[in-house]
Design a protein around this nucleic acid. Structure first.
Lengths: 123, 123
DNA sequence: TCCTCACATTGACAAACATCGATGGGAGCA
DNA sequence: TGCTCCCATCGATGTTTGTCAATGTGAGGA
């Protein structure tokens, strides 16, 4: 329930079923659902964050810490930290503190749900 | 080629195959691909635009003109026009002038490609 | 020709955003 | 206890964005 943001399919206001099909292209989305979806898409609406997601996904074990990302992204540590917070707040990544390091991983179910919201209804 | 923006899967820099699978979660995306993807996601990163897409999709014939959208969106005509331009520039909708009216439709293939960029690699 | 309607463009403005340097707060090690 | 390292937060700054009123443009009808 924590990584299942709400009404993902841009379709029926009830949603909650989300996850797989019937997206933006099926019905009129509620204001709430539109806001939730937009917040997640907005988190993806920055080249740096897209690259960060990609870097995390490509890392060993599917997780990475901030120090792994600053160099490839070519940005300062506070900036990376900021972007990670945006992605985490949107539910697209998760954070796990382990010793001194904070490890970030993708939230595949959320990303899959977002994809479902974009997939046109087959018909 | 007009509605196939570039390297959608947030994976291999070559991309171009895009469309269906191997997304953000498969490899390190190139700077170009990240920028292209981010521009499209950014267009989706506003509640109003999400709702507009949904309204278009739910309209008869899968198309709508600006005057159909101002009331449901609760915004002024110039603002709707602005959002339509953002969506069109991102390639998410298409515009067709017919008499006095401009009809907007979704670009399902682009939306599908975007969804593909989000779908985790199965395995 | 003139008027009306649908839409785009312009100009303006407040809000949000991306980025950085500087600082703070824990965790581990000596 | 001190020191170092990783990361988050703060404050500042320049840029982008969402919105509207006003105006421009082009098509159709009287």
């Amino acid at each position: 329930m924590s990584y299942m943001p709400a009404a993902l399919p841009l379709t029926q206001p009830d949603a909650a079923l989300a996850a797989c099909c019937s997206p933006v292209t099926a019905g009129i989305v509620s204001d709430e659902a539109a806001t939730t979806l937009a917040r997640m898409f907005k988190a993806l609406g920055d080249p740096t964050r897209v690259k960060l997601l990609s870097l995390i996904a490509a890392s060993a074990g599917g997780e990475a810490c901030v120090c792994d990302l600053t160099d490839p992204a070519g940005l300062s540590q506070p900036t990376i930290s900021h972007h990670m917070k945006v992605l985490a707040d949107a539910g697209l990544i998760t954070r796990e503190q382990r010793g001194k390091w904070a490890y970030f991983s993708l939230a595949p179910q959320v990303l899959g749900s977002l994809a479902g919201a974009l997939t046109p209804t087959a018909g």
